[in-house]
Design a protein around this nucleic acid. Structure first.
Lengths: 192, 192
DNA sequence: GTCTATAACGAGATAGAC
DNA sequence: GTCTATCTCGTTATAGAC
């Protein structure tokens, strides 16, 4: 039941990127924490871009699996959207930022491949939210917005921004207040 | 009418931080673009933290001067809030991100002094917006929110996040759509 | 798969001449 | 104020033994 080395590398690297940012995460930091040498790390991920690609791929897969799970277990649009914001809240509560949010701020320094993966993460999020919102509107359980797509983009932007500004405030609870305000603005009350 | 060296250094460093991030901005990059040596750069800003402090201080002063100007020239709350979002839009239109947004994503790697300045930038923004919103509500020109402070925080978060997610989308116009949605959610129509 | 060793480079920073 | 020269360290990455 031991975890293989590649997974342990990804776990450590992910935590470093989510807290300190990609350009403050080095092979030295990762290898030291995993307990292997720099050279061994390069065996698993030859270049930093390879490691970064693996990080964003795994993060995206897990995130979208969580979206599937929300859709499967919660029939009501308000519950779904609250659960969506809770995905972000849980990341922040663990002392981390959204991996793709962090990579977005370093976007210009990313390899084209990683850039594409980051872009796809957000695009996939918009598509999922737009569909969830449109379904809620169609079922008469959500007020009709000007555009479901625009609402989806504003929600993602608001949550990513809320994570970003919560850390400098030193108040971990600040995120929740902003998230509630965002949800309320699209017709989702804070409590069911 | 020539610009002094310290200012040219700040101009170049600012552009690099706003596009590539603090940890991808080096003394080598800055000195090369300014046309001086690495050693000369250290004469003006002994340590990178000194340069970063000067950057965030200047950026904050200019930003808050712009807020004063908005308040002085625009009596209507809707015009004021639209102008506020336009400050962000203008930064993005110049191919840059908010300096303090970029520093917020590298928050854990900042010196305590710089962290304090970044925190103060956001806090000052909340205070200004909260007052502007509360005045607009008091004048009956804005629907009363649950909390002016919460609305202020959500607006800043939304705008910072909108900048962040606009770049991966490859669509510069995306920011405007999100900004309009944010303004509309607090009762400010897109056009006067 | 992991190691030692090392290459090759860039980073932040300093000394001292001009 | 700016330079040359240098230092020290961290960084990504590779070669080759085990």
């Amino acid at each position: 039941m031991t975890v293989d080395t590649a997974t342990r590398i990804l776990d450590v690297a992910e935590e470093l990127v989510q807290t300190r940012g990609l350009n403050a995460m080095s092979y030295g930091h990762v290898s030291a924490r995993v307990g292997i040498t720099n050279a061994s790390l390069h065996y698993h991920f030859p270049a930093k871009a390879d490691l970064t690609t693996a990080l964003v791929t795994r993060y995206s897969e897990r995130f979208f699996a969580a979206l599937d799970e929300i859709e499967r277990t919660k029939p009501d649009v308000a519950d779904r959207l609250r659960a969506y914001t809770q995905l972000y809240a849980a990341v922040l509560a663990s002392g981390r930022m959204c991996l793709c949010g962090m990579l977005a701020s370093d976007f210009e320094t990313l390899s084209p491949t990683v850039q594409d993966h980051v872009s796809a993460f957000f695009e996939h999020s918009y598509v999922w939210l737009e569909r969830i919102i449109a379904e809620g509107v169609g079922a008469g359980r959500l007020p009709a917005p000007v555009s479901s797509r625009a609402t989806a983009e504003a929600l993602v932007a608001g949550l990513e921004g809320a994570m970003l500004v919560s850390r400098p405030s030193g108040d971990p609870g600040r995120f929740e207040g902003i998230a509630d305000a965002l949800l309320a603005s699209i017709g989702v009350p804070a409590r069911s």
